[in-house]
Amino acid sequence: MNIVINQKEYIFKKGIRNDHKIRRSFNQLAEQSFGFDFEAWYQLGFWNEKYIPYVLLNGEAVVANVSVSLMDFYLSGEMRKYIQIGTVMTDANYRNQGLSRFLIERVLEDWHSNCDAMYLFAKDSVKDFYPKFGFVSAQEYQLNRDVTTNKLDIKVEKLNMEEQSDLKLLKNKSADLNPYSLFATESSEWLVLFYGISFFKNKFLYIPQYNTIVVADFEGDTMNCYDIYGTGEIPMDRILSAVMKKETKKVVFGFTPKEQEGCEISLLKQEDTTLFYKTKDQNICKGNKRMFPILSRA
């Protein structure tokens, strides 16, 4: 579709994953904007219909993008359909010309009445931009607790994201929701696998005896537990005790656990990041001390 913005003509397209030329230009803009691209994710077959770029092209070059991620959340036992907005980027030569505004308006037009809520994570430099579209800011809260059990002598394997068998295992396990989470995503394996081949490549730990994957890393005596994929039949304490190190004294959760006894809750502080949401129920985020799982952030 040809459109005119500020007296300049652009081509507007969405859902460009299988168009090689446009995808290549999209990846180039992502590399320039964020320092990574999506090509390996695509080539491995993990980019599916749940991640939808909305792009503007000048000729054959993608000059602006806003992506939609379709997210299914379970909240207090009920399924919620959320839309996450992300990968907002504009070529440096095309900024401040209304391109992002046009794309955000198209996303709202397509999805606002077809979901329970829309949300995004914005940098501080654009915090004043999203309220213009009816988005409001919200705080998130993170839980942590002291370790209450000793490390278990159980075999734990680090998954190798270069191995197809390990990728397949991660894909199958992460397709289900985290059974230990109060606010969990379902069928988000496409996004988990993006983390698996990029930023979290070395953080996936498999416990064969429990048929459970734990996403975690360690900083001194602290274990950051980002997510857990398993049957839920094993108590979470045993899962944590299997993967933690002998020196681990504290666990910080990257999701909101159902079991909160002994947990300390604090305001989630993220540098240069603010959560914005838009929903018919403006109280959806107020008074609820939880967080969007780290691995659900597109």
Rank of each mutant, 00 (worst) to 15 (best):
Q142Y: 09
S296M: 14
L75E: 09
E271H: 01
I284C: 00
I11N: 05
S125F: 05
S33F: 00
Q97L: 09
L205Y: 13
H20M: 09
E49M: 04
K249T: 01
D116F: 03
T248M: 02
K13C: 15
K132W: 07
V251S: 11
D110T: 04
E78S: 12
H20R: 14
E186G: 00
G45D: 15
R24N: 13
K171C: 05
E163Y: 13
F200W: 14
E109D: 04
N2D: 12
N283A: 07
F73S: 08
I85T: 14
K155C: 05
G220K: 03
Q28S: 11
D146E: 14
L191M: 02
Y119N: 05
D19H: 09
L57V: 01
N283K: 11
M236W: 01
C285K: 10
V88G: 06
T274S: 10
P235C: 10
L70D: 13
E78L: 05
K14S: 12
V251L: 13
F102T: 12
L177E: 09
E264I: 15
K132G: 08
G220H: 04
T90K: 03
Y206L: 01
L70Y: 06
E261Y: 02
I284D: 01
Q270W: 03
M118L: 15
V68G: 11
M79G: 01
I16L: 06
S67F: 02
V68R: 13
L177S: 01
G287W: 08
M244F: 03
S198V: 08
K13W: 14
R290G: 10
C225G: 09
I85C: 09
F255D: 04
Y180P: 03
F121Y: 14
T149Y: 07
E49Y: 04
K203H: 04
F102M: 12
K269T: 00
T148S: 09
N202W: 11
T185I: 12
S76D: 11
N202T: 15
F36L: 11
D19G: 11
Y277E: 01
N96G: 03
Q260S: 09
E109T: 08
V63E: 12
A61R: 02
I284S: 05
S67H: 03
I234M: 15
K155P: 00
K123L: 01
R297H: 11
H112D: 13
N27F: 04
E109G: 06
K286I: 05
Q7N: 14
R101S: 14
I104G: 02
V126Q: 08
Q142D: 01
N288D: 06
